[in-house]
Design a protein around this nucleic acid. Structure first.
Lengths: 198, 198, 198, 198
DNA sequence: CATGAATGAGCATTCATTCAT
DNA sequence: TATGAATGAATGCTCATTCAT
C-alpha cells in the first residue's frame, strides 16, 4: 500500500487527506462489484466519501480514473508476486500463487476475478484502456512462465498461459454458479498438476 | 437457425416478418460486440432493422430481451452439442467439441466468448438474469461430464469443470491479447489432454 | 412562415404540433436576447414550451439547433428581400430596404441586429457554424449589389459592402447606447446617400 | 503599454510581479479570441501564467475582471487618440485614425474589433458591464466629433457616428468573411470621404 | 399490429467561487 | 500575499420506456 501512495505522489499530487488514493480504491471496489459501465461517478465519489465535483480535480475524466485503477491493480499484482519470492523453489512459489488466488474464492464467487472481469468488460472497447488492462493478465503469465522455466520446462510459456487461463476460467465459473467450492477444487487440481510437472 | 425460429415460434409468437427473431439475433450480436450495458435499444433496433418503438411490442423491457438472448444462446448450445452425437466415441466427441470452440477463435480474439462475456457482465448483478445465464455454462459442463463419465472417469465432474474453465479462461486471454493463436495452442493442448485420459 | 414549415417538412420531420418550428423560433428569440453561449437548452425548451429531453428528438445537438436557426434566418432574409421586388426602381428598393431595417430599431436598441450579433458571437469560433452564418451577411450584400449595379454603378460591390457595414455598425452603436434614435438618424443619412448616387 | 501599466498602478496596486497587469492583459486577449462567456478563469490564469486561485486576490469576481479589461481598453483608446494629436490638421488626424484602425485588419479578420465584439457580447446583458463598455465606443465618437467640428461641420456628431459605425460594421464583415481586404477597401473609401468633407 | 413522438430521470463533465493555510 | 484544494450548482446530452394513433 505504501507503494501505491508513493506512486500517486510521484504522479504529482500529494495530499495529506489522500483523496486521490481513496478515489482509486473506492473506484476499484465498485468497479469490481458493479462493473465499470454500471458505475457512476456519484457511486465512486460516494464510496470514497468525496464530493462529486471534486473527482475532477484528481482525474480529468472517468476513463482517466479507470486508467488509474488499472495502474493500481498492476502495482498490487507486482507487489503480491514479489512477496512470493521468499519461497525457495519455483514449484513452491507456483503452489503458493495458486493458494493466494484461491484464498479469494469467496469474493470471486460474488464478483468474479477483479482483474479478469475488468478485462472482460474493457475488452469490448478498442481503445487505450482495453490495451492497458492487458498487463493485468500479462504480469502473472510472465511470472508463472519464469517459475516454470526455472523448473526446466521448455513449454514454460504454454503452461503459464494454461495456468492463468484455468484460473480465469474457474473464476468465471465460480462467479456464475456462486460456488467458491469450484475454485477450491480447481485449486487443488492445479496444485497436483504443478507437483506432476517434475 | 431453423431451431431458433422454431424456438421462438414455440413461445407463442408467429410472424411472417420475423421481427422478434431479428431483434433477438441483432441483440445477441451487439451484446457480444459491445456488452449489454453499453448497448442501447436503438443499437439493437438498428441492427435488426426494426423501428425503436416497435421493440416494446415484442419485449416488455430491455431485460426481457436479454432474457430472450440467453434463451437463444441456450437453444443454440443444445443444438450444437446434439450435433456432436454422431461422433462414435465420447473421446471423439470431446475433441470435436474442443475443435468446434477453437474454430471461433478469430471472433473470440475480438469480442471474447459470447456466452462467457455475457455471464461475466450479468454476474455483477444479482437478479434473475444473472441466475439465468448460468445455464449457458452449465449445459456444456453437464455435457462434457457425461462424455467423461462414459469414458469411465470417476472424476468426470471435476474434469468437466476444468475443461470448460480452461476454455473460458483461454477465451478471456485470447480476447485480452487479441491473439487467436493462444486459443489454437490451448485447443491442441486440451486435445492431447483428452487423449491422455485413457 | 409557410416557407419555414415546408422547409422543415422537407427535412424529414412533419408534425402537426409543430414542435420543431417552435423550437427554432424560440431558440432564435433567446439567442437574440441572450446570445448563443449564455442560452441553455432549458431556456430554449422553456421558450418553446417543450420538455428539455424532447429537444434531442428534433436536433442532435445544440449546435445542430444553432444551424437550424441560421437556416431560418437565411430563409427569412430571402423572403423579406423578395418582398421588396414590388418596388419599381432599384433606388426605391434600396430605400425601402433601409426603412425595413430601421423599422426594427427598438429591438436593435435592446438586443442589436439579430443576424449581426449572432455572427459576431459565432465568428469567435472557427467551425462550420461560423462559416454558415456568413450567408446571413452575404445575402443582403449580394442583393444590394444587384440593385446598385442596376443603377449603373461600377463600384456596386464596394458600395453594397459599405451600406451593409453602415447598417451593422449603427446597429451595434444603437444597441450599445440603447438609443434607437441613432439608427433612425443613420437611416435618413443612408437614404439621402442612396438618392445622391444618381 | 507603459501607459497601461501606469494606469493599473494608479489604481492602487503596485506589485513587482505585475500579476494584476498580466491577468488583465491575458484576459483582454482571450476575451478577444474566444469571447467573454466562452472564456474560463482557468483560460485567463493560464494565459497570464498565474495560479487560478490567485485570480481572486486581484479581482473579486469574473465580472470584476471584465470591468478591469474594459478600463484598460478605455485607457489604451485614450492613449492612442492622444498620440494622433501631433498631426496638424483635424483632417490629417481623422485619416491617420482610419489608417490606425485598418492597420489591425488581419486581427479583425480573425477575431473582429476587440472593443466592438466585446460590446456586442456584453450588450446582451443589462447590467453595469454593458453600460460600462459603451465608453469604448463613445470615446472614439467624441474624438471624431471634435475633429469634424474643428473642420467646421455643423453635422459633426452625425458624421462621427456614421464614421465609427462604418468602422464597426466593416470590422464585423471583415471578421465574418475572414477577409482583411474588406477593411482595407473600406478604409480607402472612408479616407476619400474625409477628403470630400472640405 | 406498428411506430413516430414524447418524456423525465440520470449521467459525465464544467466552472465560478471559496477557503484553509 | 499566495495557492492548492475543494465544492455544488449547472449544462449538454442519453436512453429506457410510454403512449396516442
Amino acid at each position: 500500500m505504501t507503494d501505491l501512495i508513493q506512486g500517486s505522489a510521484a504522479r504529482g499530487v500529494s495530499s495529506a487527506s489522500g483523496k486521490r488514493e481513496r478515489l482509486i480504491d473506492g473506484a476499484r471496489q465498485v468497479f469490481h462489484a458493479q462493473g465499470v459501465e454500471s458505475t457512476t461517478l456519484a457511486d465512486i465519489a460516494n464510496a470514497a466519501d468525496v464530493p462529486v465535483g471534486n473527482v475532477y480535480y484528481y482525474f480529468k475524466s472517468k476513463d482517466d480514473l479507470v486508467q488509474a485503477v488499472i495502474a493500481e491493480h498492476a502495482d498490487e499484482i507486482q507487489a503480491r508476486l514479489a512477496a512470493l519470492e521468499h519461497h525457495r523453489t519455483p514449484k513452491a512459489r507456483l503452489k503458493a500463487f495458486i493458494r493466494m488466488l484461491t484464498d479469494e474464492r469467496e469474493l470471486a464467487a460474488r464478483y468474479g476475478c477483479p482483474q479478469g472481469s475488468l478485462c472482460s468488460e474493457l475488452d469490448k472497447r478498442d481503445d487505450e484502456l482495453s490495451r492497458s488492462c492487458a498487463q493485468l493478465i500479462r504480469l502473472p503469465i510472465d511470472w508463472a512462465e519464469q517459475q516454470l522455466r526455472a523448473m526446466g520446462r521448455r513449454d514454460a510459456r504454454e503452461l503459464a498461459v494454461a495456468l492463468i487461463a484455468s484460473y480465469q476460467g474457474i473464476a468465471l465459473l465460480t462467479n456464475t454458479f456462486r460456488d467458491p467450492g469450484l475454485m477450491a477444487g480447481e485449486g487443488r487440481r492445479l496444485e497436483r498438476w504443478v507437483d506432476s510437472l517434475g
